[in-house]
Design a protein around this nucleic acid. Structure first.
Lengths: 159, 159
DNA sequence: TATTGTTATACTCTATAACTATA
DNA sequence: TATAGTTATAGAGTATAACAATA
């Protein structure tokens, strides 16, 4: 196996290990100043990034989880007033999930807290390297999700 | 917030979303030809990368989980003959966890399957970009784990 | 009756706390 | 009695399956 490939995989794994643990998430919500579990944050930030209300199914697809999972967390977020249901403009009988003002504030705070870690870490990096990291990581994320998606389709059709 | 920073965070999150889901793990073990749950794989690959037997506590630290978690999975792996306990050469009363031949084979297969996704995705990339990605991702992983560690220490001492 | 979402349920992953063993 | 590890327990996180609703 190619040496740089191994370094890439190993580095990704280490990064995920650091960022994935419960303590890290706890620190994030503490920095953001709001008590939210991990799926809550994912949903709020997804809606923020989407920049428009989304259906349950769309959120689930985006987060790559099953819809009952989203249903439950959205219900909890709705009770807390962080999201609300609005009519789907394309389909009058359907609903979409929208951030409330409070939800937007919370989502922004979470996104900001995560960004601040990266910012702190990247502070010492020369600007060209920061830009290059952004470019390569974005490309990797694009290509990886595309690859896994086509592979999933070929697997399921082969079955 | 700086634009390239936002792209970096967002890309990392998408990458983690793709690679983290249960289906992805299932596909990995299928490709590797062995039934193992996620913590099992993490432990086996950790031992493989370490390239020497490790104590329970060391594995837990490396994976950034609590030791009871490791204890349980190691016990299961031991029953299946994938790892075994050997005397700690530095401390005759203690034990270390070692990969058996079968365990090594399984760990290699898992590491290989993960690497193959990256390989497939990076196949179209020009070599300089692949090398650059490896370098930058490694640096990011180093800096991030260092940052989170020092931050964790300052938080706990402040408390 | 096809699509979308929901309710019910169960399994996996991981943490905390309490206990044990060993020197 | 300090250290490392284990057992016991509980709580997140997420999937599957069965059901409901709506057109």
């Amino acid at each position: 196996m190619d040496e740089s490939l191994h370094r890439t995989v190993e580095s990704y794994r280490r990064l995920a290990t650091s960022l994935n643990r419960a303590k890290t998430h706890e620190r994030l919500t503490q920095a953001a100043g709001i008590r939210l579990d991990r799926p809550d944050v994912q949903i709020l930030v997804d809606l923020l990034d989407a920049d428009e209300p989304r259906r349950i199914g769309k959120i689930a697809e985006s987060l790559q989880v099953e819809s009952p999972h989203v249903t439950r967390h959205v219900a909890a977020l709705e009770r807390r007033g962080l999201v609300e249901r609005v009519r789907d403009p394309d389909d009058g009988r359907a609903w979409r999930i929208a951030l409330t003002d409070e939800g937007s504030t919370a989502a922004l705070a979470c996104r900001r807290a995560a960004a601040q870690w990266f910012e702190a870490v990247l502070a010492d990096w020369p600007e060209p390297e920061r830009a290059e990291l952004a470019r390569l990581l974005e490309k990797l994320a694009d290509d990886m999700s595309g690859y896994l998606k086509t592979q999933a389709e070929s697997t399921s059709s082969a079955r």
